[in-house]
Design a protein around this nucleic acid. Structure first.
Lengths: 202, 202
DNA sequence: ATAGTTAATGACTCGCTGGTCAGCAAGTGA
DNA sequence: TCACTTGCTGACCAGCGAGTCATTAACTAT
């Protein structure tokens, strides 16, 4: 009995390949990653890659999109259905959501978008619409709801949800560049939230 | 009279080449930039590049270092010699310094470090020591001086100068990725400073 | 002038990698 | 079991770009 040289698994291939590609891109970035390297990681021949993805760029786009899975949608749902007071929600679910980001695949995608984004405007648009815009809108909407309820006062911050993301962004970048120099990203994000709340509380 | 095919300008070449390389890297990133492209921008043959820089990587390092010119040192000097009150200094010179960063060459360097940093640990160290560490120390020192003078109160913020940089970082990244979606970075940074001051004022 | 020095050129090599394709063999159905 | 479909392989190609080097010509010193 000889074991077959390969198995036909048309259905699972795309996911396996994008997963392998994600790992490879995470390690070396897009440009420095070889299609053949991705193929080896996926336990597949190079030729097969081109049956599922026409070009290396298309593979790249598929990888980015695969990470965008309803991560934000989940948060938005919580925002809309929570029973908590605005402050409690912010200090609880929102804070812990934010604190998870720097160590999540999102950080990798940010790195990839910084490196390759300028050459893929459509991909950037996609990411903006499905992640950033939605996320900002959710935060912004939540803040104005707090204002309506009399929990928060109106201020410049209400219209600048970016301030919530700022420490998250710094944490992501820090993690990418200064892997040596430790930074307590949880504390950084928590402190910013503290400050924001103190600033907008009615 | 025939005009010479080239001029010998050993002294000026390095600066001209790094300047051209900076432009090219800013446009296409490191990996996608051809040595020959840099050479053409500098009005020089490809062969000459290798007389001044042994490899493309060495050129890259030279470019990064060329941007690190005493930008921070200037700020530190101001910090140490200013006559202003701590708050006035923060709202004045420090704020305008921070607001200039997102549109400056520093933003380009950040992008390059994100893309290529992981493969150049020594370069990252250099940048950390000469720019980031110094900058953070300056801000941190300035804050504790404010505490000593009774202008500020002690708080978690005093030990987290990163909070000052966070909106700057977000602005830089935003500018790199979402060139379409406008963001009032000046306002973002100013609002953060407002909040920080309100939070730490005695 | 002119011989000597060296900044500068540009044609060349060579390894690498994205992409192709003819053939093969694993599954399928009768 | 045997023909047929098609997922999959791996050898191959073409182009590109980093790095080299023999040659040239712009300077310099005497």
């Amino acid at each position: 009995m000889t074991k077959p040289r390969y198995r036909r698994r048309k259905k699972d291939r795309p996911k396996e390949i994008t997963a392998a590609a994600f790992d490879a891109f995470a390690e070396h970035g897009f440009a420095a990653t070889t299609v053949d390297d991705v193929a080896k990681r996926a336990g597949v021949s190079k030729g097969l890659m081109y049956l599922y993805f026409k070009t290396k760029e298309e593979l790249f786009k598929a990888v980015v999109k695969s990470v965008v899975v309803r991560r934000v949608d989940q948060l938005i749902l919580e925002v809309e259905t929570t029973e908590l007071s605005s402050e409690a929600f912010i200090r609880g679910p929102l804070l812990s959501f934010l604190q998870k980001i720097p160590g999540s695949p999102v950080a990798i995608v940010v790195r990839l978008l910084i490196s390759e984004g300028p050459r893929h405007p459509d991909l950037v648009d996609y990411y903006y619409e499905n992640v950033v815009a939605k996320g900002l809108a959710a935060i912004s909407g939540f803040l104005t709801r707090g204002v309506d309820r009399g929990e928060f006062r109106q201020s410049a911050v209400t219209g600048l949800p970016h301030l919530v993301l700022a420490p998250v962004m710094l944490s992501i970048i820090w993690g990418i560049i200064f892997t040596k120099q430790a930074l307590d990203t949880d504390k950084l994000i928590a402190t910013q939230i503290d400050m924001l709340l103190a600033h907008i509380k009615a």
